[in-house]
Every structure is written in structure tokens, then in C-alpha cells.
Simulated scan of single mutants.
Amino acid sequence: MDMATDIPPGNKDNKSLERDAIVWLTRVTDEDVTAEDRAALRHWLAQSPDHAEAFAKANTLWRAMPSAIETMVRSGSVSLPAPAEMHRGVIGRRTLIGGLATATAAAACYAMFRPPLDLWPSLSELAADYRTATGEQRQITVADGISVQMNTQTSIALRPAATSADRFELLSGEAIIGAASIKPVQVIAADGLTSADAAKFNIRCSTAKIVVTCLSGSVHVEHRDHAATLREKQQVAYGGGMMSNVDLVDLATVTSWQDGYLVFRNEPLADVIAEVNRYRPGRIVLLDAELGRGLVTARFRLDRLDDVVVQVRDVFGARIRTLAAGIVLVG
């Protein structure tokens, strides 16, 4: 495999760089790694400080596992350039080895706030009033007449009540909120506000967008200069100053997690894997963008999510590599 052509050196976002860094680590742990591969890696690292940071974070993750990458790093076969040397475009072996410890320590600190590949909760999530672990669901009552069913990897922080409504913030994850007519509820998610009175709704908070689905009653959603009122079976998404049109959805699909299932209908494989990762310990890492565009229609049991990897291998013919700590590389 020619890594120099598999991973172009152009500008990429942080998530793409993290995936690329995993690809490099995978390659250099193969038995057939060559001197050309290592030279190509050094070239990739020299593209920008972001490339080096992505590699440092990936390296920190892998160093925590009983992985062959530990031996590679200690022997000097793979190492990280110091940021100053990268700016000058000068990469020597001694500089590579010396820069590794500093960059890795910085990446570890940064990872406390933005975990690589979302493998563990961020500091803000850990500081929440209520939080569920991977695979956990929990029922709570945040105020009189307001019940919340928290899905996996969900963090909620209580906020001071408004004059006429109880309020809390969904920091991450997904929840079904039931509001009786005793007092309205307001849910903050990112820079949006969802309000309801005598209604039931599902709200999901991800890095890219917030999705609100009305299960019964009426729900009002506000995001900056946008607003929408939802009725039963209606859904809207917002984020980045934009709000989608109101769509009709299948409520059984939206709430299937309550019954112990994940249901997908013509969803890109990349989105399927991202969803499965919320429920499964470790991480499934998709390395092939083209593979991720393949469509999936399936129904998976939450207590048998390893079936997903098997089906991806059998249906798409994808290469699967299983590492320690539940890490699975696909593609």
C-alpha cells in the first residue's frame, strides 16, 4: 500500500487528520513496513503542526494499549518531529525522537478537553450533574412533572430555572423528555433552546448538529434567528446558524434505542458506524471514505453490536483489523 498516495497532504479537518494518523500507525505496525513507508510518514508529519498533533494524539491512545506501536516508538522507527523543526521543514532522527515526549504530553492535555475519536468523556461531560456511560440508559426526574430517559453517553447539567420554566442543558448524547402540564421545560443544546409544555420529545446532541423530534404534543425550537414549532412525528435539525426544514419521520426508528435496537434505513455506512460507536466500548474506526458512502438498511440488537463488524466484512468485503481495548479498524 502506497501511503504517500493514500493520504494526500492537503488541508484537512481535525477528524480527518485523526483518522489519517490511525492509518499511519496501522501501516507502521505491519510486518511489511518499509523504509519508504517511514520516510513517507516523516513527510506527512512535516505538512503542518496539525498533522503532528493528530499523530501525537493517536500515539498517546495507542501507547495506552498493548500494541506493537509501543515497540516501534521506543526503537525510533516511528517518532514525532518537534513543532519548531516542522515549521522549518527540517526533520532529523534525533529531533524526531526528542520531540515525541513534549508533543505527546501536550496532546494528552488537549485530549482532556477534546478526546481523540471521542473515546472518553470530555471534562465538561464529566462535570455534568447526570451522565450515562457507554451502553447505559437511565431514567431521571429533573423537576416536578419532568422526566428524562437518558440514552448512552449522555451528559446533562442542571441550569437555574427561568421565570416560567424549568431548565437544563444537554451537553452531549440523547434523551427523551416528557413534560407534564405542571410547568414547561426548556432544554439548552449547543446554542439552541427547545421548549415544551405537556409534550414528549427526543433530542440528540452531536458535534455537528442538534436533532429534535416531537413524539407527542407540541415542541418549540429556537436557534439564533431561526425557529420552528413541531407537532407529533415532526423533526428539525439545527447547528452552525442554520436550521433544517421540518420533516416527517418514523418515530419507531427514532426511539428504537428504548427497545434495545438500532434501526437504519438507507443510511451511509459512515453514519451507521458513528451511531454504533455511541453504544459500544472501544471504537470502530472507518479508514476508507469511499466504503463509508455505502448504504445500509439493517436492524441491530444493542447487546450484539459486534454483529455490525461481521456484517460490514461480509457485505462490503471490508478488511477488518481488531486491536486491544475494543478498537476495530475497518477498510
Rank of each mutant, 00 (worst) to 15 (best):
R88I: 07
L61V: 01
A52M: 13
D50F: 12
D20F: 09
W62C: 08
L61N: 01
A40T: 01
M65H: 15
T60E: 14
L96I: 03
V78Y: 02
A21Y: 02
A39C: 06
D50G: 10
D20M: 03
K57T: 06
P83G: 11
L41P: 00
A21G: 06
T95W: 13
F55C: 07
R94S: 13
I91H: 02
V78R: 01
M72R: 13
T34V: 04
A21R: 02
D50L: 13
A64L: 15
T60H: 15
P81S: 03
A52F: 10
V28F: 02
D50I: 07
R94M: 13
L61F: 05
M72L: 12
D37C: 03
L41E: 00
R74G: 01
E70S: 10
M86N: 06
L61C: 08
E53D: 14
W24K: 00
R94W: 15
S79P: 00
T95L: 14
R88W: 10
A68L: 13
V33L: 06
K57Y: 09
A58W: 08
L41C: 01
R94Q: 15
I69W: 11
E31P: 01
V73A: 09
P66N: 15
S75E: 05
W24G: 04
R88P: 00
D50M: 09
E53H: 13
D37Q: 03
S79L: 00
V90N: 05
A35Q: 12
S67E: 10
P66H: 15
L61M: 11
H43D: 08
